[in-house]
Design a protein around this nucleic acid. Structure first.
Lengths: 187, 187
DNA sequence: TCATGATTAGACCAATCGGTCTAGTCTTTC
DNA sequence: GAAAGACTAGACCGATTGGTCTAATCATGA
């Protein structure tokens, strides 16, 4: 019943927020430490490899958050399109809350940084977790396994592109319009 | 008939390449200068605002390159789908040449950096130029203006998402598969 | 030939970067 | 209540950052 998040969690969440806003290289350790209210020693205790470790933890945490939204969107969905639509609306709302300026939670977080291949591998794993989660709902809604995987990939690809365009325009409409783009005008 | 690109051009192209690989904050000025073979003084002569100016020039240059590929893909295309397909194949080839590790030319370049809103505005303009170029071909192929704009947006959104996924997987297949995703299996 | 503005050249700067290290403070266990 | 390990605290480090500034060199037109 702790009301305070642990030091580790505060670090991960502060890092997530800041990486999303300014990117990996754009965010200083001091900034993260200040935001989390944690001294440097603690960081290197919980994350021996420092910034890189922290970034991977942040990516992992974000992927789980996204999957949580997927779950919330698809659990009660009568069909695939409804699930996608709910997800897009939820994310559009999040986009508006985030001041319409941040990078897409997972997608923007990775790639940069010195340890290129480690980050790439982490991103690949995060992507696959998310796609697999969506594909599971596709199957549950009656699709064959490979069709579901394909539909989930298309969905996530479209979402990623839409978020980027939404960001340049600072308008969340693009996200809400994704289902119509992918599946035609709503009947 | 100069065979040597100008100092300015060498700076822009070196910056483009490096920003694409390591991002804005991840790339040091010294690195750009070394790669371009240009001393610091020249940079601040051609780009008084330094790194930020250079990044905007790089973005602009890249957008023009993309539009050139769009032109090459659509000029002789018998219909919209053919144009999109050719574009995707050309970009997949580029992706392979670039070692499958770089960010998508335009899309990854921007957003970070201190002068957030300036970069955002630059990205928006680049996006719009590219979408408008594609939409023009849509109209030329018989679509009404608003349909063409919508098709172009969907195309670019899909492309952006596909490049990202291709990057995490280090496989250009995703790019080549985009037309089938958007328009169904080829007949 | 000389003068002038454009351009190149790189030494130099304060600030910040990520990371290390030692000291101290909790918490747990016997 | 004492010993031991988990954790916090922050001073400190060399390297690198983007940016400034002065001096030299180049091209050009009178």
């Amino acid at each position: 019943m702790s009301d305070e998040p642990s030091t580790r969690d505060r670090l991960v969440q502060a890092a997530t927020r800041l990486f999303r806003q300014r990117g990996y290289d754009g965010t200083g350790l001091t900034e993260i430490l200040t935001e989390a209210g944690v001294p440097k020693g603690s960081l290197y205790h919980h994350f021996p490899d420092g910034k890189a470790d922290l970034a991977c933890a942040a990516a992992d945490w974000t992927a789980s958050e996204i999957i949580r939204v997927i779950d919330d969107s698809f659990r009660a969905a009568p069909d695939w399109r409804h699930g996608v639509t709910t997800f897009c609306y939820k994310m559009a709302k999040l986009f508006d809350i985030l001041n319409s300026a941040d990078a897409c939670p997972i997608f923007g977080l990775l790639f940069e940084g010195p340890d290129h291949d480690r980050f790439r591998a982490q991103a690949e794993q995060s992507f696959d977790r998310i796609i697999a989660a969506a594909a599971r709902y596709g199957q549950a809604l009656g699709m064959p396994a490979d069709t579901a995987l394909d539909a989930a990939e298309t969905f996530i690809i479209g979402f990623q592109g839409s978020w980027t365009l939404a960001r340049t325009r600072r308008k969340s409409d693009v996200l809400r319009g994704l289902p119509a783009r992918l599946y035609g005008p709503s009947s």
